[in-house]
C-alpha cells in the first residue's frame, strides 16, 4: 500500500504492528518454556517464565498507549483503523496467553515436587500443537497472510480433540490411582490452559481476517466439544 502523505503516520502504524509481533514472540516463548518446564521438570525455567510475564503485560500497555495516541492524534480510517484496532485486540489476546503460560509454569513448580506421571507426555503433545497453532497465527499476522490465518482458524478443533482425549485419560488415571489425583488435577488445568491458548490463537486468526478483508469471518467455526 502507498505511503501516507504524512510519513510519520505510516511509521507509527508500522511501529505498533512491530510491537505486536514482538509481544507475540514473548508470549510464544513463554508458552514453549512453560511446556519445557513441565516436560523437563525444570523448576528454574518455570520461575523464569513466571517472572517474564511482567514483560508481556508491559508490552500490552505499550501497544494500548500507542493505539490511544494514534486514535487521538491521527484519527485512522478504513485499513488504518483496522491496523490499530487489530493491534489492540491481539495485544489483549496475547496478554491472556502470557497469563496462561504463567499458570502452566506455576503448576510445573508443584508437579516437579511430586512423583513424575506418564501422562505429562500426552500434555506435551497437546502443548506442541497449541504452541504450533500460536506460532502459525503470529506468522500469519506478520506476513498479513489471510490463507494461513484461515487455516489456523480451522485447525483449532485439533487442539479441542486432544483436550477431550487427555481429559478422558486423566479421569481414568485418577480413578485407578487416587494418590495421583493432585498431579492429575494440575495436568488437567494445564491441558485446559493449552486449550484456551488454542482459542486465543483462533481469536487472533479472526482478527487477522478482519484486518485484511474488513469483514468478520462469516461461518461458525467447526469445533469438537471442549467444554
Amino acid at each position: 500500500m502507498a505511503e501516507h502523505t504524512v510519513k510519520a503516520f505510516s511509521e507509527e502504524l508500522d511501529a505498533i504492528t512491530q510491537e505486536v509481533a514482538r509481544m507475540g514472540g514473548l508470549a510464544e516463548a513463554a508458552v514453549n518454556d512453560a511446556l519445557s518446564a513441565v516436560a523437563r521438570r525444570d523448576t528454574e525455567l518455570a520461575q523464569q517464565v513466571m517472572q517474564r510475564d511482567a514483560k508481556i503485560d508491559a508490552a500490552q500497555r505499550e501497544i494500548e498507549r500507542r493505539a490511544i495516541k494514534l486514535f487521538a492524534l491521527r484519527q485512522p480510517m478504513a485499513s488504518d483503523l483496522r491496523v490499530v484496532l487489530t493491534a489492540w485486540r491481539i495485544a489483549g489476546e496475547l496478554e491472556r496467553v502470557g497469563d496462561l503460560a504463567k499458570n502452566i509454569a506455576k503448576r510445573a513448580l508443584i508437579l516437579n515436587q511430586a512423583e513424575p506421571i506418564q501422562l505429562t507426555r500426552s500434555a506435551e503433545r497437546m502443548g506442541k500443537i497449541a504452541a504450533q497453532h500460536l506460532k502459525q497465527v503470529l506468522d500469519a499476522y506478520a506476513n498479513k497472510d489471510l490463507q494461513a490465518a484461515t487455516a489456523v482458524w480451522h485447525g483449532d478443533d485439533n487442539i479441542d480433540a486432544h483436550y477431550n482425549s487427555l481429559f478422558r485419560e486423566l479421569l481414568t488415571y485418577m480413578i485407578e490411582d487416587p494418590r495421583m489425583i493432585s498431579s492429575c488435577a494440575h495436568l488437567l488445568f494445564i491441558a485446559k490452559n493449552l486449550e484456551r491458548i488454542g482459542d486465543h490463537g483462533t481469536n487472533i486468526a479472526e482478527y487477522i481476517h478482519f484486518l485484511i478483508t474488513g469483514e468478520e469471518i462469516a461461518t461458525q467455526r467447526p469445533r469438537a466439544d471442549a467444554d
Binding site: 502507498a2 502523505t5 478504513a78 485499513s79
Partner: peptide, 11 residues
C-alpha cells in the same frame, strides 16, 4: 482510490 483518499495517501 477511496481507501487511499480517506486514509490520507493522496488528495
Amino acid at each position: 482510490r477511496t481507501q487511499d483518499y480517506i486514509t490520507g495517501r493522496f488528495g
